[in-house]
């Protein structure tokens, strides 16, 4: 098992592009950390630097206190699961899983025992003699997991391992990977651009944007107290409502003087409200205009306008509404304020 420490880790590609700005964070032993962010924000670059597949331009990377900047990937005691699985197409599942052990001069009997154990854990026993081309996507994914698990590494690295699966399988594998990681207690870094994966799997989430860390925190912290408008709109589906407002005489105002709550300060401000923090209430003080109802079975999303600005409200399935005006209330203490210019939380 392992603690990981990144100090001012930075990546500049040979073409001069700075894909990862100096980055600092530590990962505790056995922790499951998810790196999340939009496409091209540098998640894979960061992960690949940890794996040793990409040179580190600056800074220091340590695993268990040992600086590994210049250590070969094979000697970092890590295992990686790739988005396209990267299984060796000409080898059987058994050989695929055992290849890393074989290269490390493990005795054949021991390899077989470990492969069997991993296969049992991942329900792959009956497929051991098949080639990857004879497996379904989910099974291939499991073989890739098996290849990682069998070596009993200090650190698991995942680069969008589920993005090639259909929604249902993705959901199932999400749970499997998470529970496997729990059981084995292996420190893990998991890259995804899917905020649902991040929320459901992570012990801690690191939100990246443009090669820079926006926020580090538990899923609850990230969700309830986003550090910036970027995090607020990236995490959560539907995202947090962001409306233009202003601070005036200790009040948060939007539109033509509609007060949402109390706050110190003056001047313009961006007001963030989660869609589920709004409730329909006949005595409500705010007027919300519903344009469109999105039916999702377990709940409904009402898309419309609040004080002339786009706004979404999340209601339970028992609430029946049509297009038109509805009075709403905002739950107390659920308003987040962000700086208009920098987007940072205030």
């Amino acid at each position: 098992m392992a603690q990981i420490s990144l100090q001012n880790l930075r990546k500049i590609y040979p073409n001069g592009f700075e894909a990862v700005q100096p980055t600092n964070f530590d990962i505790a032993d056995g922790e499951f950390v998810v790196l999340v962010g939009p496409s091209g924000c540098g998640k894979s670059t960061l992960l690949r630097m940890v794996a040793g597949l990409e040179d580190i331009t600056e800074g220091s990377l340590s695993i268990n206190g040992r600086q590994v900047n210049n250590v070969d990937p094979a000697d970092r005691d890590i295992a990686m699961v790739f988005q396209n699985y990267a299984l060796y197409p000409h080898m059987t599942v058994r050989k695929n899983i055992g290849y890393g052990l074989k290269n490390r001069k493990t005795a054949p009997a021991e390899i077989e025992a470990k492969v069997q154990e991993a296969a049992k854990m991942l329900n792959l026993v009956e497929y051991l003699d098949r080639k990857p081309s004879q497996l379904s996507g989910g099974q291939r994914q499991r073989v890739a997991m098996g290849r990682a698990v069998v070596r009993d590494p200090a650190l698991f690295l995942f680069d969008e391992p589920l993005s090639n699966l259909d929604a249902k399988l993705r959901h199932q594998m999400r749970i499997e990977i998470k529970s496997l990681q729990r059981r084995l207690g292996v420190t893990s870094i998991y890259v995804t651009h899917d905020q649902v994966e991040a929320m459901t799997m992570a012990d801690r989430i690191i939100v990246l944007n443009g090669g820079q860390i926006e926020q580090i925190g538990t899923p609850a912290e990230i969700y309830h107290a986003p550090a910036s408008t970027f995090v607020a709109s990236f995490m959560g589906a539907p995202p947090m409502n962001l409306v233009e407002g202003r601070l005036d005489t200790g009040q948060v105002m939007i539109g033509d003087g509609i007060a949402l709550g109390n706050a110190e300060g003056t001047g313009p401000v961006t007001v963030g409200i989660r869609p589920e923090d709004v409730e329909l209430n006949d005595q409500g003080s705010l007027m919300f205009t519903v344009d469109l109802v999105e039916e999702l079975g377990a709940h409904r999303l009402l898309h419309g306008r609040l004080a002339g600005q786009p706004f979404t409200v999340h209601v339970g399935k028992e609430v029946v509404v049509g297009a038109g005006d509805a009075a709403v209330n905002i739950k107390p203490d659920s308003i987040r304020l962000f700086d208009v210019e920098t987007g940072a939380a205030r």
């Binding site: 094979a74 990686m80 890393g100 290269n103």
Partner: peptide, 28 residues
């Protein structure tokens, strides 16, 4: 695929092993 090389590197296959164990069989 590039990832095949990377997976092999992580699996501890050096240049010679990668050539013989992976590239040659793939090129059949």
């Amino acid at each position: 695929p590039e990832e095949l090389v990377e997976a092999a590197r992580i699996d501890g296959a050096g240049p010679v092993k990668f050539f013989i164990d992976i590239l040659v069989p793939l090129s059949q």
